[in-house]
Nucleic acid binder design. Structure first.
Lengths: 230, 230
DNA sequence: GCAAAAGTGTTCGTCTTACACCCATGC
DNA sequence: GCATGGGTGTAAGACGAACACTTTTGC
């Protein structure tokens, strides 16, 4: 079947997109940009890029990251392909988006501005071009599930963080609030946090204990069938 | 960027594949077929099909189902795209596989044979062409997670089924055994099963109660934030 | 009569949830 | 001095895990 008319099938273009979530210790953000060319010139989109013939999806996404935030040090996960026939007016473009999770610091904030991108608050996503709102909604759902079921949240915190920062992150991602005492109990019970013995002075001038995530321990526990659950 | 040399990007082919899981009330099976053409003529593959220019992925998968088991009454879910540059020697073919879950009866068994397909036991998957083993492993992982966290298993049972059949399904999919009393307690606690009042004579000649899944109730509970968990 | 399958309760420990106050700091 | 945020304990209920026997049937 394919041998007869190979050409008829090789007429699809591939792109990746990145729904980049970043936490600045207070709010979750998503990185958006505006389209520089037709179609939908000027409209909000997630950073996207056509995949070259000999380029893997991951390589492509990493170029996207370099071009927007200036580095590629981000937790990444592939999402479902968006492949509707008429999603792009110039032809059949299949977008295989990823979601990323990272810490938002001054550096990424400035780099984004420089590269014509903007960090939008998680709950304030505007109307976007193509099916990009759908992609973001899907990525948010995925993030929620992951935060609930795997300790991915730590990818958006500094190596050492306070429990209040961790709780804020969970509350933002899951869009609900937790009782402070119960939150701490649950996290400590999981035995995935290590007390660094250090403290930090938070923005309110209070002293607060610093913890770090014990990745090694998590991996060992995972192998034995442990399931992180929040 | 794209306007200048549009052609250079529109040279990818799209295919879907289906990892079809089916339960005959005793064992889980996966549907495989053998390649009829080069490359890898004669090798085991999952049923796959090129996507036509104006065809959605879902339409394409449904044709696949029609061509193999003779109908399209299957629970479907899209998996991650498999897009490695050199996964197919004839060009860059991106496979966007789905997994499906259904009940295996005589009908599907015969239709598969007629269509050059074979139902292989879940734990006996042979070496396959392309990256199809990888796809199956990925689909199995997804199935495990789904069975644990959503009541998808009911898609592979008849409308009315016994608790032992349900338990067997869970044991096969998750590759472990459960205590019968605890299993029943857990399932009844979830309040998702309705006693039909009927019984059936099983293959061992014993009478066994029939239950059905209360989809409406599940949907209501889901909306209120209920999470099925096994 | 014995092998195989359907069905059934209790106990113990752990986890979840609800709930309130003290202390230090910045202003 | 007061508003803000960091930090802490207890009690009640729900849930999970471990565990054994009775009954019926086919052979």
């Amino acid at each position: 079947m394919i041998a007869d008319n190979k050409e008829q099938y090789f007429n699809v273009a591939l792109a990746t997109g990145i729904v980049l979530f970043a936490f600045d210790l207070e709010h979750l953000h998503i990185l958006l940009t505006r389209k520089k060319e037709e179609p939908f010139k000027g409209a909000w989109v997630i950073p996207s890029r056509y995949v070259k013939a000999d380029e893997s999806l991951e390589e492509n996404v990493k170029v996207l990251l370099k071009n927007t935030i200036g580095h590629e040090d981000v937790y990444l996960e592939q999402l479902n392909a968006f492949a509707k026939v008429y999603r792009n007016p110039i032809g059949r473009v299949v977008n295989i988006p990823f979601y990323g999770l990272m810490q938002l610091t001054e550096k990424e904030f400035k780099n984004a501005e420089k590269n014509n991108c903007k960090w939008i608050k998680y709950h304030d996503v505007p109307d976007m071009a193509f099916d990009h709102n759908e992609i973001i909604d899907y990525a948010k759902e995925r993030l929620k599930r992951r935060v609930k079921r795997r300790p991915v949240g730590f990818n958006s915190l500094p190596k050492e963080f306070t429990l209040n920062q961790l709780q804020t992150l969970y509350e933002q991602a899951l869009n609900k609030t937790f009782d402070k005492r119960n939150f701490r109990k649950k996290i400590f019970n999981s035995q995935l946090l290590v007390d660094t013995g250090k403290t930090i002075i938070t923005s309110q001038g209070k002293e607060s204990k610093l913890y770090k995530f014990d990745m090694e321990r998590y991996e060992k526990m995972s192998l034995k069938g442990y399931d992180f659950l929040f």
